[in-house]
Design a protein around this nucleic acid. Structure first.
Lengths: 239, 239
DNA sequence: CCAAAAGTGTTCTTCATACACCCATGC
DNA sequence: GCATGGGTGTATGAAGAACACTTTTGG
């Protein structure tokens, strides 16, 4: 969705093509808060507004490839650092004032991602916790795109092992519980969660080491297992 | 993905644009078998091969609108007849020999859909049960697209009320069970399913009428409730 | 009467929940 | 020792699986 340099001739009526873009919803946990990476637009339209990182797909370029490229250009993130997953494609004609733009939204989840360096054509870039975002009006239809992605993430934690993508290679059960609590926004019973996580086949692999204690008994370290589906699921409903 | 009339100049190297298309996975139950609507291509590429109905999105056209238009043109189906839902977008450069085509796949589910009339630029059109499709090689990457859609449908039956979209406005619990059995490809216990379906809030609305008996006690009629999520879910796993 | 499909009851087991309790560390 | 977080035990209840059984129709 970023501006290419020349858009003064926005409404050229000759042979109007549909342009294809990718938008990224980069999510991570910062101080226990689910946070999204936004960039502040330097150019029109929506100059000065906060927006999702994005960019046009180049001819001959794979959609995933475009997403990784934007991730590198606008968020300084390599492909190893994140889990990338398509969310939905948005194509309502009026969504971009520059013309008809169909944008494929990708969700990128990563562990403890670094502060972004400011890329080109970008006034600023920073992490926003969802709470802080309540007062912000995003550019384009990005508020709706973000909402769909967040809901997708919340719901995928229920029946997949996706939560581990928010954590480094080795982690404790408490950290994993922290992911669920942050993303779902509600506390979980520590004991019950521990049993559930450690006994669900394919979710975690027990290591022989422990983390440095944080005020109590040191927690055993785990790494992600090979399973992707959580059966039975870990439902967020209740009450 | 259908051919527009002029594609002799397929590889024009001047300003190669990415074209946006929609592909439709139209699913219904025919004689208790999950079936998909395919059209036989009249033009190159993949002339004579079976393919998903599809077409290019027009400038200024909504993605859903394009999907409904294709549905009307190539399957003679009105928008009231089906439930339409986006599945995923496919954009690998080599997937269409005519150039770079990004295609948004939509799943369309309907009750007892009619035999298609042959549309323009189409050699033939018919329903295929999934079993019959085992021997058929589909055009483009449509086999992969179909597989993703089928898996999406199977999995959404677990935690949503989507199954009712395969049924007419009024139906029996047995018919609903038949949907699950056909889509999942395995039998379910009639008694347990009955309890689960009738007691899950928002799934079914009981009517005061009964269906004509089919060899046994007449079954009560129901219509779809207002709920969309099935909690707790109806998991297909087991054994 | 019998066959067949609809619907209910019953038993067993699995699993979520709530919460008590013990374990292992730092101070 | 005490505080703190890690981890286990246990009782209760909800819900799935298996299957017996009753109900209501047609022949």
């Amino acid at each position: 969705m970023q501006a290419s340099a020349s858009e003064s001739t926005a409404s050229d009526s000759t042979a109007p093509e549909i342009r294809v873009a990718v938008d990224l919803i980069v999510l991570t946990l910062r101080d226990g808060a689910l946070s999204v990476l936004l960039i502040q637009r330097e150019d029109e339209p929506h100059r000065g507004a906060w927006a999702l990182p994005g960019g046009f797909v180049r001819h001959g370029e794979d959609l995933d490839g475009a997403a990784y490229r934007v991730l590198a250009d606008e968020a300084s993130l390599g492909s190893g650092a994140v889990h990338l997953e398509q969310v939905r494609t948005f194509g309502t004609p009026g969504r971009d004032p520059r013309g008809h733009v169909v944008s494929v939204a990708f969700m990128a989840l990563g562990a403890d991602l670094p502060d972004p360096e400011r890329g080109e054509d970008v006034a600023d870039a920073r992490w926003w916790s969802l709470a802080d975002l309540a007062d912000v009006t995003l550019a384009f239809d990005h508020a709706a795109v973000l909402e769909v992605a967040i809901e997708r993430a919340r719901s995928k934690l229920e029946y997949t092992t996706l939560a581990v993508t928010f954590l480094p290679g080795e982690f404790t059960v408490s950290q994993l519980r922290g992911v669920y609590e942050s993303v779902w926004g509600r506390p979980l019973d520590a004991g019950n969660f521990h049993r559930k996580a450690t006994r669900t086949e394919g979710f975690l692999v027990e290591l022989d080491r422990h983390a440095a204690p944080t005020g109590g008994r040191p927690a055993r370290l785990y790494r992600a297992g090979t399973g992707t589906r959580l059966v039975p699921p870990l439902l967020r409903i209740s009450e």
